[in-house]
């Protein structure tokens, strides 16, 4: 056990799984870096250094720099997974899904069903997501709702370093295609992470705060925003449960519903664009399954329905923050119903 950054936790998960299983390979743009170039080998180790050092231990046979050719190599990862390897492909930014989505949602995701249960596709596709990096509209999106929409995919969104390591090892050992989303703002955050390998099962939410007044569901980095809001609210006498679903597919609906049954109030914090995102999905779930428990309307804290802006002041306005979560929680606490509506 030692303090490790989110980046180190992911690197360690990859290293330990590659040591454990020779079928695990990495592929992606600059995952080693410097292939064929006159300068340093392992020049980058991924565009933000997450896979640094792995090519040194495992060689270029298993750490494959790809051309900038997402359709080919994401499709190759799917084909390799269906034929005996356990590839971990890196898409760099989720925003690049547009040039290889067919290989993900029409091929990898559907093999098993289309082939009558006879295919096994143990594929992990890692990618960065999220705003806050001043990276503008084509390098800052969330897009996990799109993957979550696709049957056959599993979608994992770790909220911290501990979560990232255990969920990634689970993803690599999992026999289904897994989309693994890394919020790039988290890479330098540190926490205690076991040195040993461990797995966190999919479909089990983590309750990062326990309280009785309001349930807050956060997705990915928004779990930290929700925790900060809950801590501030606790000092004001409002106690919140914060739920980190960990995976949006499968989604631990039971933990969310159980908590709403207890608190009667729900706030969802989702960094994804507000239409058809996890907040709307979870809202629909709760409206359908726990309507009777609700004591106030559900509140969704999401960005506006605009692309992610570049200018720092605009981007800061765009991303949900703890103050907006606190305001939403206070709003559901103060909700008094339609006065006289039933008189």
């Amino acid at each position: 056990m030692s303090k490790k950054s989110f980046r180190q936790a992911i690197n360690e998960a990859l290293r330990q799984e590659m040591r454990r299983d020779p079928r695990v390979i990495l592929m992606g743009e600059d995952v080693a870096g410097g292939a064929g170039a006159p300068g340093d080998d392992d020049a980058w180790g991924g565009v933000l250094g997450v896979t640094k050092g792995l090519v040194g231990e495992f060689g270029r046979e298993r750490v494959l720099d790809t051309p900038l050719s997402e359709s080919a190599y994401i499709g190759a990862a799917a084909g390799a997974a269906a034929t005996g390897l356990r590839p971990v492909a890196e898409l760099m930014f989720v925003d690049f899904m547009g040039v290889c989505f067919d290989q993900i949602f029409n091929q990898a995701a559907k093999f098993r069903y289309m082939f009558g249960g006879h295919a096994v596709t143990p594929l992990v596709i890692r990618m960065m997501y999220g705003a806050g990096f001043r990276a503008a509209s084509q390098h800052s999106q969330c897009l996990y709702p799109i993957f979550t929409h696709i049957p056959g995919l599993k979608v994992v969104i770790p909220s911290s370093a501990y979560e990232a390591k255990g969920l990634l090892i689970q993803a690599i050992r999992d026999d289904d295609p897994v989309i693994f989303m890394e919020n790039k703002v988290l890479y330098d955050q540190e926490e205690e992470v076991p040195d040993e390998s461990y797995t966190i099962p999919f479909g089990e939410a983590n309750l990062t705060r326990e309280g009785s007044d309001v349930t807050i569901v956060g997705i990915g980095r928004m779990v930290q925003i929700a925790n900060a809001a809950a801590d501030a609210l606790a000092k004001q006498g409002i106690s919140c449960t914060v739920i980190d679903p960990r995976t949006t597919s499968p989604l631990d609906t039971g933990s969310i519903l159980d908590s709403v049954e207890e608190t009667g109030r729900l706030v969802i914090v989702d960094e994804a664009s507000p239409r058809c995102n996890m907040a709307t999905d979870i809202s629909a779930l709760v409206a359908q399954e726990a309507f009777g428990a609700l004591r106030a309307p559900i509140r969704m804290v999401c960005p506006p329905h605009v692309p992610v802006p570049f200018a720092p002041n605009l981007e800061d306005l765009y991303v949900p923050d703890a103050a907006r979560v606190e305001a939403a929680v206070r709003a559901v606490m103060q909700y008094a119903g339609k006065q006289g509506a039933r008189a």
Partner: peptide
């Protein structure tokens, strides 16, 4: 419970 699960999740 989470603390115990963290132990139980360790390989081995």
């Amino acid at each position: 419970t989470e603390d115990l699960l963290r132990f139980k999740r360790l390989d081995g």
